[in-house]
Every structure is written in structure tokens, then in C-alpha cells.
Amino acid sequence: MFAVYAESFSPDDPLSALRLGERPEPEPAEDWAVVTVRAAALNHHDLWSLRGVGLREEYLPMILGCDAAGYDEDGNEVVVHAVVGSADWTGDETLDPGRTLLSERYQGTLAEKVAVPRSNLVPKPKSLSFEEAACLPTAWLTAYRMLFTQAQLKPGDSVLVQGAGGGVATALIALARAAGLRVFATSRDEAKRRRALELGAHEALASGERLPVRVDAVMETVGRATWSHSIRSLRPGGTLVISGATSGANPDDAELTRIFFKQLRVLGSTMGSRRELAQLLDFLDVTGVRPVIHDTMPLERARDGFAAMAEGELFGKIVFTR
């Protein structure tokens, strides 16, 4: 079957490690299912895998990709949950110390077919296209958990989304606005600020610009470049939820004095559970909110999609189709 995969690592030039070609079809273990992939979304995780981050050499060659939507063996339309937990784990799988993502230990979704635990399949609402559904299991699920599970935001609350433009950030803006939150967004890029307003942000500001009010929560995915601004933007008792650090993990000032003096909560967030993915699908089905798709292209053009992500000029998701 045709697939997009890594057979080596290249920390400085990840695209040089990218391979497109034939790979063996999956042979599912007991209680696993094979999904015929109709659409699969690209994530930064895939670029990091090509650099050798999160993917060990003994698992090469590895088909890349975490997100997919397609048909199960019975012809049902399904969305694939990317978190694979330990066989004996019960409860929230994101807290399982032995958890992994598709394309780390098990072959990923950028292929004609993918094998996953049967329990990882979630029914796809008819109202969502395969392309839209494929955007959800990583970026949109991460955003959903940040807003509603970790920050526990409710209608009328205010939230700041740092770094508008990426897959998680666009999901945060759209979900927050649909949930009745007052949404602020930041970006260094004026065009991305305009897009954030079109997506539902009430105000879009330049990175580091002072907000007109202190917010109830900040959604942080940028890290070092925005950390101090995030802490300073919170009201006393507010919450900062962090799920990534694309600009670096070591801030110049951790702002510890402000954190304890203002009694702030700082929470980490990683992906989401299968239950939260089902809730997210229901949320989109009911509200009509849809993922922002930067571009859709056939899987055979995967190298173009990876190059666009590496250049960092995306607003929304890149989706590959079969």
C-alpha cells in the first residue's frame, strides 16, 4: 500500500528523511481493527518524528501520522483516536505512563490503511466530512481538553489564545467562541490577526501587546516567547494551560513571584481521551463549528504539505486525502 514514512532521522533537515512509497499492509492484532483511510491530517508531531524526537530508531521504518478518518471493516464511518494506552490501563488514557501515539510505536495514519485498537474508533457524525473529521484527533482534541477539562471554562469567561494561526490555536479560537467565551488572540502577523477575528476572536492583538482586561485563562502553546506575557495577562486566581512550547521550553523569566502572589494555576495538558474526542465530535455536530483547513491535497503530494508546515506559514490544518 502507498504510505508516507520515515526510514531515518535528520535533525537539521527533516524533509530529507521523508519517504513516499510502498509499505506492507497492516496485520491487526487481536481486538484491533483495520481502517481504510479517506483523509489524514498533518501535525508538527510528524516533523519532529523526522528529526528523531519521540520516535526511536528501532521502530524504523515508521509510517507517519496520528490523525485519520475513514471506514472500518464493516463500512462504518469512523474517526481514529491516536492515543494507544496499555492493555491493562483503566481510566483517562492520557495519564497512562505507558501510553503512546500512533507513529511512535505503532504504524501511523499517512497510508491507505491503518491498524488501531478497536476501542480507539469513534463514530463520525454524518454532518462532518472525512477531511474535517481528520483534523480533530490531535490539534482539536488538544484544544478541547485545554479549554473545558483543564481550564474548566464556562460561558461568559474570558480567554487569551497565544500564537493564532497554528492548528491548536485556530481550534481554541473557534471552540471558545462557540462555547460563549470572550476570546482574545495574539500573533506577530497582521494577516493572521485578521484571520483570528474572522474565526471568532473578539479582539486580536500583536504579540506582547497589553490586553484591555485581565483574563480568566490563557491557552499557551508558544512557550518561551510568550510565557511572561501570558502570566501577566491573567487575573488573580486565573489559569494558564500549556500544551506546547514551539518557541522553546525555557522562559527568560518563569514569573514565579507573580504565580504565587496572584495565586495562579499552571496546568499541563496533553492530547485528550477517547471520551473527550466523542464529546468534541458531538460539539461540532451540534454547533456547526468546523476545522480551519489551510489546504487539502492527495497523499502523493505529502512532501508539499510537509514543506509548507516546515516553513510555518499555515493558518489551520493540512489534510491529505485518498
Rank of each mutant, 00 (worst) to 15 (best):
L199C: 05
R303H: 10
S230T: 01
V218F: 02
D216E: 10
D252V: 11
S187Q: 09
T246M: 12
D282T: 12
M297G: 04
A185V: 03
A169S: 15
F261V: 14
L234Y: 06
M271H: 09
L172G: 09
G248E: 06
A217K: 00
V289I: 13
R232A: 15
A217S: 10
A196I: 08
E198Y: 01
A254W: 14
R235A: 15
T170I: 08
K262F: 14
E220V: 00
T287V: 08
R177N: 03
D253M: 09
R182G: 04
L181E: 06
F184M: 13
D252P: 00
V292Y: 01
R188C: 02
T257V: 15
A169K: 06
G305K: 07
V286W: 11
L181H: 07
A196L: 11
G268H: 09
V213Y: 07
E209V: 04
D282R: 13
E220C: 02
Q279M: 07
N250T: 14
A308E: 13
P236H: 13
L234H: 05
D252I: 07
L267G: 05
I259R: 03
F260S: 10
L175N: 07
R194V: 02
D216W: 04
S247E: 07
A307Q: 15
D295K: 14
G244P: 05
I293K: 08
D295F: 03
